[in-house]
Each structure stands twice: as C-alpha cells, then as structure tokens.
Computed example of a mutant assay.
Amino acid sequence: MSDTTEHTAGAALTVDGVTLTAGARHLVRDVTLRARPGEVIGLVGPNGSGKSSLLRAVYRVLRPDTGRIRIDDADAWHLPVRGLARILAAVVQEPATAFDLTVREVVAMGRTPHKGLFDGDTAEDARLITSALASVDATALADHPFDRLSGGERQRVLIARALAQQPSLLVLDEPTNHLDIRHQLDVLGALQRLPATVLVALHDLNLAAYYCDRLYVLRGGEVTASGPPADVLTAELLREVYGVAGEVVVHPRTGAPQVTFLPGER
C-alpha cells in the first residue's frame, strides 16, 4: 500500500456544547470535543449513542440546535460550500449512489473542489488520484465500473475519493464496515499516517484503541468519557456503557489496550 497521497496540514476542530434534536428527542446533548491538528480522534459507543448524528453536524447535514462547530478559526456553518469542501471530506454510512462511472472517475470527483467549472484534469490531479487508489489497495479496480463493485470495494473507493480531495479535516462514519481484516488495517493505517486531522466513528474497540490518539465515548447522546485509549477503556466502562463484562489488558507487542469480552457474564 502506498503512502504517497499528499494532504495539507491538519485543521483544529472544536465542537462546543452542541445539542441536536429530532422532535422531542435529543440525538446529541451538550457535546464538547477537541481535535488538535493531525490527531486521530475516535468516537465510540453503542448503537444509537449519537456518533453518526454528531458527525453529521460536523460535515453540515444536521444543524445544531445549540452550540458551535469551528474548523481552525472559522464557524463551520458559516463557510461557503466550496470553501468547506476544500477543507473537509466525509465518508458516510449512507448507501453510495450507483454512479455510472469507472472507479477512477469516482475518485476524480474528489478533485472537484479544487478546480474551476470548466477545468479538466491536470497531471497533478492524475497523480493524486493514482496515489489515492494505491492508498486503499484499489489500483487494480481503476477501470472497473463502480456500480459493479462489492460493498467492501465501494467503501475503499469512496475513501480514496476523500483522500484525493486532500482535506485538512477528514470525517468518517464506520469506514471499516464491509472491509475484510486486511483492508481494515490498511485503511486505518493510511488514516493514521495522514497529516490531516481525522474524526472517525468506530465500533471495534480494539481498532479504536490502536489507531486513535484519543477517544470520546458516547452514550445516550452524551460524552461519558474521553481521553487516551489507555485511560478510557476499562472494564468498568464496558459494563456501564455497553452492558457487558470484559477485561482490558495492555497488548504485549503493540502496547495498546486490548479488550476481551466475557460472554455470559455481567
């Protein structure tokens, strides 16, 4: 897998007291989060805890009822659409549109925010597209029709499109869904090496523990714990937040926390 995809330096992300509602129901309640430039920040928590809703507020699909979201010194919701697209890229859980395009053409869409209306692809665009494909092990798929790919292949291509966009802030909602183990590790390793700031929702706590600099644990739309994985992931938290028994030890080779669940225990 290539490490040659180039990106601008990471942006600082500040989520300050954000609340999101749907009718009378709180999706997210008074969430505050900080991501320093270049950090990989993981959102973890059970289904329905508010991870996806919070990400949608960051990439401007759900407008906060209260609170603010800032990227560097700018209010994210006040940035022009094109300006935001030059800074932020998102890989979301919603089913991908069945583009009648080749894989290379889909990845090339990531270059759109950096081009004029009638500009064609440059040699630099082509280089970045090729590099993004290599970063997710999709070079061999470049000329394949996107709508004939498997779910995992599509996911990798959409991540490549986001990489080609060269964001300073990359937001991903469960990017390892549909991926086999090798490609899970490849994709998360590529994200970890980016100079961009990464905000990623993950279900797998062991992947989150290894690849994220800090974690925010959501439960019922609120942050219940935050900090480095070694501080956050404890047997008490597993019981309180997930309702399961587990053990957390330091992996002897990686030094990262390793979570083992204990079926049948509470």
Rank of each mutant, 00 (worst) to 15 (best):
R60G: 01
A160S: 10
L170E: 00
S53K: 12
E105Y: 03
V157D: 01
R68D: 12
Q184M: 02
L170T: 00
A108G: 11
Q155V: 05
E174G: 08
F146Q: 13
A74D: 14
D65F: 09
M109A: 10
L55G: 00
G110C: 10
A160T: 02
V58G: 02
Q93L: 04
E94S: 13
F118E: 09
L133F: 08
V136C: 05
E105F: 12
S53G: 10
H114P: 07
A123S: 14
D121T: 06
S52V: 01
L149E: 05
G67S: 12
Q93A: 11
G116A: 13
L128F: 01
R104V: 09
R182T: 12
L133K: 04
S135F: 05
I71H: 02
D180W: 09
D119R: 15
L170R: 00
T97P: 04
G110Y: 11
L84G: 04
D65R: 15
V81R: 15
S150A: 06
N177M: 07
V61E: 14
D173R: 06
V91Q: 02
R86T: 10
L149I: 03
T122Y: 08
K115A: 14
A142R: 15
A108Q: 07
L101P: 03
S135G: 15
I159T: 06
S52R: 03
V136D: 13
R154K: 15
A160P: 04
D75Y: 06
R148T: 15
A132H: 01
P145N: 13
A96M: 01
V61Q: 15
R148W: 06
G120R: 12
S52F: 00
K115D: 10
Q165M: 08
L62K: 03
G152A: 06
G110D: 07
I159W: 08
A85E: 11
I159L: 14
A140T: 15
T122C: 10
S150G: 13
Q166F: 06
A85L: 06
T112I: 14
A90N: 08
A89H: 01
M109F: 14
F118M: 15
D125Q: 11
R156N: 01
R70K: 09
V81Q: 13
R86L: 03
S168Q: 11
V61G: 01
D75Q: 11
G116L: 10
H183E: 05
D180H: 07
V106E: 00
L62P: 04
D75G: 04
F99K: 00
V157R: 03
D147Y: 13
P145E: 12
V91R: 00
A90V: 13
P64K: 08
L117Q: 11
L55A: 13
A134Q: 09
S53I: 12
S150P: 02
R127W: 08
R161P: 03
D73V: 03
D173T: 06
H144T: 08
